[in-house]
Design a protein around this nucleic acid. Structure first.
Length: 370
DNA sequence: AATCTATCCAACCGCTTTTAA
DNA sequence: GTTAAAAGCGGTTGGATAGAT
């Protein structure tokens, strides 16, 4: 038997909120703040609000919050959602965090009702951000390619073959992808077997990677830290570059500067940005030099870059790395060519009305609202 | 004008993660 | 260290509405 919700258990009201209920909730929050939602049902008698705390929280977050933007999404927001989704997947809260005044629910609905359809219409699989043709290609003639590429990592293959050529059988996928996937899942603080990772790294002489740790079950954080230190010593690319070529050609992150993944380090904090540089310069530096896949090619580059600086500041490293890898492989496969893939050919929103532009407010203040 | 269909979006559900006791 | 409660999150549902027939 399905578990009943808290609202059912307590016989609380459900469904759409009335203006009176909104007002009551607003009054409650004005009086007590929004720190403790569980207090709402406890105060139900005095409030006359027969809603569970969960429902109240959702109503506040998605509708009543004063900092909500609402209204139609601008072209810039749409582009950003697509880009972030290609990096983060269905992490709606993380995507929404980069869109001032937008909620995860709003972004999710916008994606499902509009962007998804739009991408499909343009022959792009919204789930993979690759051309639909590549995903629907049969396995004909692909087995030979996979077998021929057996000694290479998938990333290596992607640098050589197009995605269409790399649609292997399910078994081949398992065989080919597993080691790389294991190596590339750089998740904060997770202990994982690193055999495959070191093996892949060792196969690339002079890849700039430090020696593998003695334990194969050490945390990746330690290795990231070692990489970071080495890169700082050796230099190169301002000590901050994510070498996409190295990544896609060698199947391992080559000369990647990755700070301790166990920290909440942000991209901007490790981008080697001079404190003296202006925000615009810093943002442009990061986005244009180190994160080329983020270049949407719109007009108003400074504003866009400012915003992406915020994006970079928020992304956790694990997400960044994973997303970067996906972007790199996609780009190498010819599937992702920057914004062009998504651009309907109408100028990419560069001529969008100023009023529609994303308002660049401090995303931290938004994320700290509760 | 009535009915049907498609779309949008607010709200819910249930699972996971975080926090507090 | 354990457990329960709270909070957070993503997927899904269902009602309202617009557009088509």
């Amino acid at each position: 038997m399905a578990k009943q919700s808290c609202c059912h258990k307590k016989k609380l009201r459900r469904g759409l909120w009335s203006p009176e209920e909104d007002e009551k909730l607003m009054n409650h929050i004005a009086k007590y703040g929004h720190g403790c939602w569980s207090s709402v049902p406890k105060l139900a008698d005095s409030l006359g609000l027969e809603r569970c705390g969960k429902s109240c929280r959702l109503r506040w977050i998605n509708y009543l919050r004063p900092d909500l933007k609402r209204g139609t999404f601008s072209q810039e927001e749409e582009d950003l959602i697509i880009q972030l989704h290609s990096m983060l997947g269905n992490k709606w809260s993380q995507i929404a965090a980069q869109l001032p005044g937008r909620t995860d629910n709003e972004v999710k609905n916008f994606w499902n009702s509009y962007i998804k359809k739009k991408l499909r219409d343009r022959g792009i699989d919204p789930a993979t951000h690759k051309p639909l043709a590549a995903d629907t290609t049969t396995t004909t003639n692909t087995t030979a390619v996979v077998v021929a590429a057996a000694a290479r990592s998938t990333a290596t293959c992607r640098a050589v073959f197009s995605d269409a050529e790399l649609v292997p059988t399910a078994a081949a996928v398992q065989q080919q992808e597993a080691p790389l996937v294991g190596a590339m899942q750089l998740v904060d603080g997770i202990k994982m077997p690193l055999d495959d990772y070191w093996h892949a790294a060792a196969a690339v002489p002079g890849n700039g990677m430090p020696a593998a740790p003695s334990s194969t079950t050490t945390t990746l954080s330690a290795y990231h830290h070692a990489l970071s230190l080495q890169q700082a010593t050796v230099g190169g690319c301002g000590g901050a570059a994510f070498d996409m070529d190295g990544l896609s050609h060698c199947g391992v992150p080559q000369a990647v500067v990755v700070p301790s993944a166990s920290s909440s380090s942000t991209l901007t904090s490790i981008a080697g940005l001079s404190p003296a540089a202006t925000d615009a310069e810093q943002s442009a530096n990061v986005a244009a030099t180190n994160l080329p896949w983020l270049d949407l090619g719109h007009a108003n580059p400074v504003g866009t870059m400012d915003h992406y600086a915020g994006v970079l500041d928020e992304l956790r490293w694990s997400d960044y790395f994973d997303g970067a890898y996906q972007a790199a492989t996609a780009t190498q496969g010819g599937a992702l060519q920057g914004q062009c893939l998504y651009d309907g050919g109408g100028g990419g929103g560069g001529g969008k009305d100023v009023d529609d532009a994303v308002q660049f407010v401090d995303v931290h203040s938004l994320s700290n609202w509760c």
